[in-house]
Design a protein around this nucleic acid. Structure first.
Lengths: 137, 137
DNA sequence: CAGGATCCAAGGGGATACTG
DNA sequence: CAGTATCCCCTTGGATCCTG
């Protein structure tokens, strides 16, 4: 798919690589790391589907995440502007999270890559298997 | 952009999230980590442009990477089948690396996200600035 | 030339307990 | 309910030195 514009994509990417000396390096690390983050994708996904959600509700949807890790993930995403945190200043605490426009766009950008990875799950498994057998020879 | 098929994307992603219980989690971690890896993207990019390259040549193109980190990155990419390592068994050592078909596809899949992030660099900077001012209030 | 060995600092991920 | 504090292990990124 998307055979058109391949050279163009590479050229633009190349230009960015050259331009990205030191100043923009934090951007890659900061933002792209979320894509590899253990819970970030699930959080964004949940918020996309559920709209405005509370901490406990997100935890329920994810399953397996600890309070601490969820809090850290939420803080990180908030800091980068992908989600919005709304504290209702109530007792007991009532805090709601929702995707920002930036967060929605981010989700739509990483889903294709995400899908591609899982579509090629067998290729990756195969590559690893071949590699381990080659190593044992 | 790409307003068409948004629901479809989400539905497919949702289905994958549900299906991905424990077994496929390594896949996400392993493969997606390359996207956030400090050097992986540059390595893949160099190989896409330069074809078959040696260790030292890749180092020259990247600039700033240590031997150790480059070796580790190459090993990781090789393990996941994104690049191929060809040891010519010579003295002095002569080892060449090149992209596999899987690696090329991977590059084309992550470039759009990559470009999007840099196109929105200002948004991220702004979000962070607002967040830090909000925190200090 | 390619990369292994060693040592280090920082961060990710997690378990458990506690708090306003 | 939402979150913090403390402890832990593991990985990442890196500097430096050494080797076939």
């Amino acid at each position: 798919m998307i055979p058109q514009g391949e050279d163009d994509l590479l050229a633009r990417s190349r230009a960015l690589c050259d331009a990205m000396e030191d100043e923009d390096d934090w951007l890659k690390r900061e933002v792209l790391s979320h894509a590899g983050n253990r819970w970030a994708f699930g959080v964004i996904h949940s918020l996309k589907e559920g709209g405005k959600l509370r901490h406990a509700e997100i935890r329920r949807r994810l399953g397996g995440v600890t309070q601490r890790m969820l809090t850290r993930t939420l803080r990180q995403l908030e800091r980068d502007g992908l989600i919005h945190r709304q504290d209702h200043q109530e007792v007991p605490p009532h805090v709601e999270y929702e995707l920002t426009r930036l967060g929605e766009e981010f989700l739509l950008k990483i889903i294709p890559m995400w899908l591609w990875i899982f579509e090629h799950a067998e290729d990756f498994r195969q590559a690893r298997k071949e590699h381990s057998t080659a190593a044992s020879e």
